[in-house]
């Protein structure tokens, strides 16, 4: 069997087995798959293209709002819904809920992708630290806009429609959301793996190594950069929709446009596992989710300190991430004839 197919089967195997082996941790496992998607999509810019974005969380947030707004607005008045706040005044019938769910996922993929396509050529014309700072500001600005948009519930946020009681209750809901998260991540993995093998993938690497040279050789660099961001935005939007359903409530700056948590974590995961590799982001996401849950359980109150310590240790001792460290070790062994 080819190695690529073997890897995919291994991932699918993990995805199928995990909720049965760890049934109490379904929400954490769902987030693990979303984290895999975070890190993989971030790496398409940060690792493959050399553009360290701190604003990718924007697409996650847009996807979350778009999905929920569509699911509500198809059947109710969105303004009345958000005004009612947490009050349970509106209830979707199962048919309404699932039709809205599907339409919401659709919107959550398309809207962020359209946003990336529209804003990309401007924001991606900046380089290096200017790009990083700009994306950081971009994330904060969009969060503030959401926090002041009344139709989206402004600062008090927006509640996500509740899974209908008739459709199997919480257990069915958790399993369904877990499955969708795993599917989204696997689909994202396949897409990234195929992209890396295309001319587009080579062009992103060329931009990372020397953008001026790439341009002088006739590569359409802006076109490539914007498409790369659009692909990431597409998947991040879907991740946002699913995360909204898992969390059940959208806070503009703490959940949707959470630059200080999700926005930074996606960078850390890719760096932890190894930037610019296919498996680095996946390994990084798994390690990160493990340590995060571990710290939140056993070091509550000090969890952010521990997380900071983890970052320092990984950057100082494993600057190329787990995959980079492993590769360097193997290369060293090969040289010594081991």
């Amino acid at each position: 069997m080819r190695r690529g197919r073997l890897e995919l089967f291994a991932l699918v195997g993990v995805a199928v087995a995990a909720p049965f082996l760890l049934p109490e941790y379904k929400a954490q496992l769902s987030f693990l798959w979303l984290f895999v998607l975070f890190a993989l999509t971030w790496d398409l810019q940060g690792g493959q293209m050399g553009y360290n974005s701190f604003g990718n969380v924007v697409f996650f947030g847009i996807g979350m709002y778009a999905s929920t707004a569509v699911q509500i607005a198809l059947f109710f008045n969105l303004g009345e819904w958000t005004e009612a706040g947490g009050e349970q005044t509106f209830t979707h019938t199962p048919a309404q809920y699932f039709a809205g769910f599907a339409a919401g996922i659709f919107a959550s993929a398309l809207l962020p992708a359209a946003a990336a396509l529209a804003l990309g050529s401007f924001i991606l014309s900046m380089r290096g630290q200017y790009f990083a700072i700009c994306t950081l500001g971009f994330g904060i600005a969009v969060g503030e806009i959401a926090a002041s948009a009344d139709i989206l519930g402004a600062g008090s946020g927006m509640s996500v429609p509740v899974w209908p009681e008739e459709s199997g209750g919480l257990a069915a809901r958790d399993l369904a959301l877990y499955s969708l998260c795993a599917l989204a991540a696997l689909f994202c993995f396949i897409a990234m793996r195929e992209l890396h093998k295309t001319k587009f993938g080579l062009a992103l690497n060329a931009i990372r190594d020397d953008e001026d040279k790439a341009e002088a050789m006739g590569l359409p660099v802006t076109w490539c950069k914007v498409r790369s961001w659009t692909v990431s935005a597409f998947f991040l939007g879907i991740a946002g929709a699913l995360a909204g359903h898992i969390i059940g409530f959208i806070d503009p700056t703490e959940v949707a446009f959470a630059g200080a948590t999700f926005g930074v974590w996606m960078v850390l995961m890719a760096v932890l596992g190894g930037k610019g590799t296919l498996w680095g982001p996946i390994i990084g996401a798994a390690l990160f989710q493990f340590f995060k849950e571990f710290f939140w359980t056993y070091f509550l109150g000090w969890q952010y300190v521990m997380l900071g310590l983890l970052i320092v240790v990984s950057v100082v001792f494993f600057p190329d991430g787990v995959v980079g460290f492993w590769r360097a070790r193997r290369a060293g062994q090969a040289e010594r004839g081991l």
């Binding site: 080579l202 690497n205 060329a206 190594d209 020397d210 040279k213 790439a214 050789m217 590569l219």
Partner: peptide, 15 residues
């Protein structure tokens, strides 16, 4: 100026 982290063959193919 070459693409330093890419293999020589890939440097050629993307050109």
């Amino acid at each position: 100026r070459v693409y330093k982290q890419m293999k020589c063959l890939d440097n050629m193919r993307i050109s």
